[in-house]
Simulated scan of single mutants.
Amino acid sequence: MKINQNTVLQGQRVTLVPYTSAHVPRYHEWMRSEELQRLTASEPLSLEQEYEMQRSWRDDADILFSPECTFIVLDTARWAGQERADEDCMVGDVNLFLTDAEDPTLGEIEIMIAEPSYRGRGFGKEATLMMMSYGVRNLGITKFEAKIGQENETSICMFKKLHFKEVGVNSVFQEVTLRLDVGDQERQWLLEQTNHVEEKSYVEPKLPAGTLET
């Protein structure tokens, strides 16, 4: 994940920033939700385990078991120019995994809009497009996959609107696999969809006073 540790991507609705230790407490609160655990096929972790997970995502060199790229999704309107702390503007996260050691051009993308009030308002769509564009431009990704629980019809519909096609169903894990091959036409479309995005340098926020990273 070090490739994007100093990168901010600012869009119209969302701003993407690297996942740092300052974001962990809010992220931990999200993942206590049984709904999010179900939708993301995740197990609840302690706060200490979440800090360790964040460190491993930042530092782990084994790209098959840790995201190649992770961004926290912020509400641009709340964050930009208002001197608000990141954690006050957090909406969700977006991840890109390299899951095939023999094909580094294949990226598996995950998006989570954790705050219920932000769902269905285009935040997930813009964050996904921004991550895909970043992957194409900076990581050489030419193929994307998304694995989504069969019950998550909203996410399945969103990815299909982004030109993904359903290529498989896993009845054991009850998930659907969708895929997008980025040829010249799709690449041009993707870059056009994200030509408003500004890339900036990121300054990692400090932990609140009295907070200890465990």
Rank of each mutant, 00 (worst) to 15 (best):
L45R: 15
N4H: 03
E87M: 13
D93S: 08
R58S: 14
M131T: 00
Q174F: 08
G210I: 04
G183V: 01
H196P: 02
T70Y: 05
F164Y: 11
D103N: 15
G149E: 13
A127S: 08
I156G: 05
N138Y: 04
S66I: 02
Q12G: 07
L106M: 01
T99H: 01
A209R: 13
S171N: 11
I3V: 13
T15K: 08
T177D: 08
N195Y: 09
R32I: 00
L178W: 04
T20V: 03
A209E: 15
I148W: 13
E29N: 06
F173N: 09
V73M: 15
L180H: 12
T214L: 13
E35M: 14
S155P: 09
L16Q: 01
T105P: 06
V203E: 11
T142F: 05
R58Q: 14
L45I: 12
E153P: 03
E68H: 13
P25W: 14
P18L: 06
E48R: 13
G11K: 00
S117Y: 14
G183Q: 01
Q10K: 09
V203D: 07
L178H: 08
S42L: 09
V73G: 08
L74A: 02
Q10H: 03
M31W: 05
D100L: 01
T99C: 04
L64K: 02
V24E: 07
L129K: 10
T99W: 02
L139E: 00
L180D: 09
S33W: 01
S117D: 15
V73N: 10
I109C: 07
E43A: 14
T99S: 02
L16D: 00
M158V: 05
Y51V: 04
P18M: 10
G120C: 03
L190K: 05
Q12A: 05
